[in-house]
Simulated scan of single mutants.
Amino acid sequence: MNIIDLHCDVLDKLTRLENANFRNDARLSASLEKLIAGNVKVQVFAIFVHADLPENEKFLAAVRQIEAFHTKVLCEPEMVHITEWTQLNELEEGQIGAILSLEGCDCIGEDLQKLEHILNAGVKLVGLTWNHENGVAFGASEDPLKGLKPFAKEVVQLLNERDIIVDVSHLNEQGFFDLLPLAKKLIASHSNARAICDHSRNLTDTQIKELVKHGGRMHVVFYPPFIENGKEHTSIGYLVKHVEHIASLVGIQNIGFGSDFDGMDYSIEKLANAGEYENFIRALLKTFTYEEVSMMAHRGFNRFVNNKNLARE
């Protein structure tokens, strides 16, 4: 079964690890060989800039990751750069779609031209924050009552004009609700259900329902502390509990996957890398039908991006 995965941090590792290569580097959880082994047909590669970098170095760090995407990921013959969503339906046997996303707008400061430069590289999804405050909004680790900053309206307007999906996964609660009426296309690329695991990075039932009500989708993440309270390691079965709960709220068609491979220090047993995706699929098939699992694995997201009826006009 083909997989569309909305989040990995391979680009960060490719720019930081010495002599790193995308094809078969054992230090990568979502290397090309592991994507192939796990039947990952489309992978989103996040541009992630570490919060502890000096402000004047953050944009350059983002540019370096874009360069790594082109020189280390797209140089592999199997990889196809997805710049238009219709390309998802044109991928041939043996090809894997590669999509750029921006995980937080820290690297742009309050400069819209920097965002335009990043979007011009082919970015298709943008999160306003990581976990901390920046010039646009407040992250999940900040005061949940603080809303979007004034600059956020300019940022979201540009994203709407460019038909970019706005990612809510790292926003704090008030920022999330402030964003709902502003963004045309919304998604949670890698978040779980707070009702199952009470963590600020997860979404409440109300948030999940409102996200889907506003045309968005929910993609579950494989990071153990977001799956089971206080746990550094957990089981696939516990992740399935999140899927079951979200499905009870908003339906199978609004659920997908966003692993966060290469952005985690901990892992799920038997789901530690992209090559083990089949173990997750088997676990889901114990609860859901093949059609339902394929909807979560790839068909739901494909419909979301290619069918205007599924997005708010």
Rank of each mutant, 00 (worst) to 15 (best):
202 N>L: 04
144 P>M: 09
60 L>N: 15
303 R>H: 05
75 C>K: 11
173 E>D: 14
197 C>H: 02
127 G>C: 12
89 N>H: 11
116 E>G: 06
101 S>N: 02
117 H>P: 00
80 V>M: 12
12 D>P: 00
78 E>D: 06
193 A>H: 04
135 G>I: 04
167 D>M: 05
73 V>Y: 02
199 H>G: 06
67 E>F: 13
67 E>S: 14
234 T>N: 07
22 F>N: 09
165 I>Y: 07
222 F>I: 04
280 F>A: 05
278 E>V: 05
227 I>H: 00
6 L>Q: 14
86 T>I: 07
144 P>E: 11
95 Q>H: 13
119 L>M: 06
212 V>C: 08
247 A>K: 03
310 L>W: 04
20 A>R: 06
143 D>W: 08
173 E>C: 01
289 T>F: 03
163 D>F: 11
311 A>Q: 12
270 K>F: 11
53 L>I: 08
231 K>C: 14
221 V>T: 12
31 S>A: 07
19 N>R: 13
243 V>A: 12
256 G>S: 02
244 E>N: 15
48 F>W: 15
116 E>P: 04
141 S>G: 07
132 H>Q: 14
114 K>S: 05
269 E>D: 07
19 N>I: 00
239 L>T: 03
201 R>G: 13
214 H>P: 04
69 F>V: 08
21 N>E: 15
260 D>P: 13
239 L>Q: 00
154 E>V: 07
268 I>V: 13
283 A>Q: 13
189 S>I: 02
272 A>S: 12
59 F>G: 13
241 K>A: 01
4 I>F: 15
290 Y>G: 00
313 E>V: 00
63 V>T: 12
2 N>I: 02
263 G>P: 07
258 G>A: 10
89 N>M: 08
94 G>P: 09
61 A>R: 03
270 K>T: 05
117 H>R: 06
180 L>R: 05
276 E>M: 10
253 Q>G: 15
122 G>L: 06
63 V>A: 14
245 H>S: 14
249 L>Q: 12
101 S>F: 01
243 V>Y: 01
89 N>R: 10
84 E>H: 13
163 D>Q: 15
122 G>P: 10
255 I>Q: 02
281 I>T: 11
268 I>M: 10
132 H>D: 15
64 R>F: 14
72 K>P: 09
242 H>G: 11
249 L>G: 05
177 F>Q: 09
190 H>P: 00
90 E>M: 08
187 I>C: 01
250 V>F: 05
160 N>E: 01
207 Q>P: 09
102 L>A: 03
172 N>K: 08
2 N>E: 13
88 L>S: 11
175 G>D: 09
104 G>E: 03
10 V>L: 08
59 F>I: 10
20 A>M: 07
273 N>G: 02
265 D>T: 09
273 N>W: 14
186 L>Y: 01
